[in-house]
Amino acid sequence: MKKSLVICLLAVAFAGQLQAQKYFTRDGNITFSASTPLETIDATNRGASAVVDASSGAMEFAVLIKGFIFEKALMQEHFNENYLESGKYPKATFKGKIQNIGDVKWSKDGSYPVKFKGTMTIHGTSKEIAGQGTITVKGGRIVASSSVDLPLSDYAISIPSVVADKISKTAKVQIEVALAELKR
């Protein structure tokens, strides 16, 4: 009886260990630029959500399209109405995996380059992408950042010919999220 109780407690403790540590944010920073010499098209969103599983490397990001703020209100309106159709497709998401998650020492200061792969969904259209980023740990603060170039045509975002010269064919998307431990 005693022995089995010990085994059982060990099993529970072990389960707790395996219970992977996760990190999250609700106010991640995502910016994009589709600027050309003719027109500045930059927007910032400070409300990205993300969860990263520190042991498996699995991660998920989501951001509300309407949360992107432009300098020109009319450009923001057109971005939502005509290009991203945020009424129909309110969110952009990324679901993927950090492939070299083992290299990241979550509790040791340092800057860890990571590679990731996954599915980006924007404007209701999904595309497999791969990229690189950095996870920086400094004094308990964890910041994940990355930059990816997304061709607009991959996401069925059509640009009318009259403005074709003013909008870059590729959006440069920059992500910077400060992650906190997810406690439940």
Partner: peptide
Amino acid sequence: WLLFLCLAGFPALHAQDDDLLSLL
């Protein structure tokens, strides 16, 4: 029995890995 119960609870702790954002 107790051990079985412990182990039975074990997979449940890991089931939600494929939908991380729902944790928020």
